[in-house]
Design a protein around this nucleic acid. Structure first.
Lengths: 154, 154
DNA sequence: TCCCCATTGACAGTATGCTGTCATACTGAC
DNA sequence: GTCAGTATGACAGCATACTGTCAATGGGGA
């Protein structure tokens, strides 16, 4: 009785479970990020967008692809960040309309203000679940995400 | 050189990675749920709320706690579902204001319309990552979520 | 019994994401 | 060189979640 294939109901339950837990996890990480970013005068989303252009300027569309959200959402956030002087739009030699979003000194300073809290949170979480297991979790999450990349025919 | 403790930067990176991947996974599951729910005339959120009261009527606050989101969000969705006749508010003998949200026949029918697609999606995902691994993923997600339940002192 | 406090629902305001539509800019096939 | 298709940004509208505030309710301790 141990090698029977899992009932379809169980597999359905597994999908629901993973989705619901992911929704909850999303909320928890979001709340944590919000708490970390607030002292630096940022929100979670703005922090994320700033983080995307630390190493090199990118276009709004590039950032959206990297973050896995729509370009319109990033555009709005980037415009707000530009209004606050944390990023600036630079001409893109490769495309006249698609300007490059570049971190300013103020933007970099804002990110740096988050670091201490980020470090504490990371260390705390690593202690609670173990670094090994945290690394495993990330790998599993990536695998799931990749599996969901391909469209599912209904 | 193999047993040195991980550098703090690596642990920080691990936290960022898990958060970012969770955000992306959240979006993917949300999109999938949206696709599954649409043919039944539902959205992902409404499906989720309906699912919470399949077995027994609950108050709005109960549902919010079960889903890990705020009461106000659930309240809004529940009101909309009630307007559409998919749930109904019943008097709660235990609390005069906190009415019970109860699934109607129409609500149950709506959920049932989602089942075929849900089954297909579950089977497809299980094939892609393996049932074993999917079950592991759920366990890992739960562990992470539990670890994040306790507040982190910054 | 009475009062403080937590829970609950209602309402207003805000942040973030999505879709759809349009005009502009680039790219590649012909 | 021209034209169709794609990529990009701008704008409008909607869905969902959050916060904050207030009043009503219920429960437990003084």
């Amino acid at each position: 009785m141990t090698d029977v294939p899992p009932a379809i109901e169980q597999v359905q339950q597994l999908l629901s479970d993973s989705a619901l837990t992911t929704f909850r996890l999303n909320g928890q990480f979001l709340a944590l990020a919000e708490n970390l970013a607030r002292p630096a005068g940022l929100t979670a989303t703005r922090w994320q967008v700033l983080g995307a252009v630390i190493d090199a300027p990118l276009t709004v569309s590039d950032i959206a692809r990297a973050m896995g959200i729509t370009r319109q959402s990033v555009q709005r956030t980037a415009d707000l960040l530009a209004a606050d002087g944390l990023v600036e739009y630079r001409d893109n030699p490769g495309h006249r309309r698609a300007k490059l979003v570049r971190l300013t000194d103020d933007g970099l300073a804002a990110i740096r203000r988050i670091n201490p809290g980020h470090r504490i949170a990371a260390t705390t979480l690593a202690e609670r679940v173990g670094v090994e297991r945290l690394a495993e979790a990330v790998a599993t999450l990536h695998a799931l995400s990749t599996a969901l990349d391909d469209p599912i025919d209904l």
